[in-house]
Design a protein around this nucleic acid. Structure first.
Lengths: 242, 242
DNA sequence: CGACGCGTTGAAACTCGTCAATTGGTGTGG
DNA sequence: CCACACCAATTGACGAGTTTCAACGCGTCG
């Protein structure tokens, strides 16, 4: 039942870089197993020193931080191909938590092998830095979005961003993609209250910009949504897959 | 006039990891020169493909993004020891701009030597990933702060964070540190309007939590400020210096 | 001297958060 | 099979927090 890296279905997605035979070979030895998680399960906990790193093979989840006052901020949505635990890998402990929103399957790697990778596979090491940089870039955009936009713009931004990521992974069919989260999750991601998020979604539905029901997200007027979100057309740059 | 890596004054700061002789040696060959910038000068421009990377030797600045609607978000304040241009180094182009707030001196590296570093100095490569991870961590905190806190909390968060960074660099003396920015910069960093930032600062002054005048920041009640910012005591973890 | 940048202040308008109550769907136990 | 609890989505009302507009003071610079 375990997926062999050689035939990993994720690599087919257009968003990922090509990999050499040698790299695939190496990833095969790096991977030590798979984990299957039920929906709602915790993947990582803030402050934990997990000895393991993961790549999401199937399913969706979310990363979040909980503030001392009890409020939660959703840092990002987790999609297939995402690499989890890099912070604990290099910094010693996780700086945020992660949980499964749907059932998920994760490829498991040993943190202790990370250093081997840096010595023996400089290209893969470079890719890891790349990933961290991409994440930094994303968080920078999220920060600008939450800091400078109003409710409608932020909601559009969050949903368009999610849609584009799904698109790159080939998860969009018929102009629609799965969005298995609750309104509360979206609210915590863009820094709005649940009630206001709900009312803003209502406006976007009324204006025929998008629809979201039964866990399915669909943009009826993508160009309007992009304009509201102040995002360019998805650039379709490729990125590494670990 | 050019500082030799062997005698780099920055390395003395307690916040930075110890470096081996070999690493210092390598950095000496990696460094190709220095640049001095006047206040207000652009360091990096969003979208640019700079062939150079920098480490801040002296001075302060800020990183920011400009949104299509003209609004600006200050992503972070730039302090000595910060490494600039990693995104353009690994991803091809900068995802934000940076400018000097005071006069600055930068160590200059060639982007083309980065790959050599990955092949020959895995420890330094690892450090680069660490840096990107730290930055990601910081942005995650900023995101949670801007997304979930009110004005007083956000302002405290931004200023305490800055103060702690200065502290780690040995830039705090007499309980005070330099803060050479405008209120507008702080406002753009925490996602508030200039006017409201001003009034919130007034409250913090009235409550005797902090003072900020003539470019000098001082906390009169640091524990109150930390509580408002919902931050723990500064953990004094060390980090690599590139 | 006048222009300009930055900090400051007051008032009005508005966005957004909180409180409260309702609906519909789902699962569980009697 | 129904009663009940529970969760997510929804809606209305109200008030707090923030933004925007406008004006003024102060210092610097040409």
């Amino acid at each position: 039942m375990v997926v062999d890296c050689k035939t990993c279905p994720l690599r087919k997605a257009e968003i990922f870089d090509e990999m050499t035979e040698e790299e695939i070979q190496f990833m095969g030895t790096f991977k030590v197993g798979e984990t299957k998680l039920d929906k709602g399960a915790q993947i990582l906990m803030e402050g934990a020193r997990s000895p393991q790193l993961f790549t999401v093979l199937r399913g969706m989840g979310l990363r979040y931080k909980v503030l001392p006052n009890g409020r939660r901020h959703v840092v990002n949505f987790i999609l297939p191909g995402d690499f989890l635990g890099l912070q604990s890998g290099v910094m010693g402990e996780m700086k945020h938590s992660a949980e499964a929103t749907t059932t998920m399957t994760l490829c498991v790697f040993n943190r202790s092998d990370l250093w081997t990778m840096y010595r023996q596979q400089p290209q893969r090491a470079y890719d890891l830095t790349w990933l961290a940089s991409v994440e930094e870039h994303f968080l920078g955009e999220a920060l600008a979005s939450v800091g400078q936009m109003d409710a409608i713009q932020r909601i559009c931004w969050g949903l368009v961003r999610f849609f584009d990521r799904c698109d790159g992974l080939g998860l969009v069919s018929d102009e629609a993609c799965a969005f298995p989260y609750r309104q509360q999750d979206l609210a915590d991601a863009v820094g709005l209250s649940l009630v206001h998020t709900n009312k803003t979604l209502q406006k976007l539905r009324d204006r025929q910009v998008l629809s979201w029901q039964d866990g399915t997200l669909r943009f009826l007027e993508m160009d309007v949504a992009r304009q509201l979100a102040m995002m360019e057309e998805d650039s379709a740059e490729t990125r590494p897959l670990i």
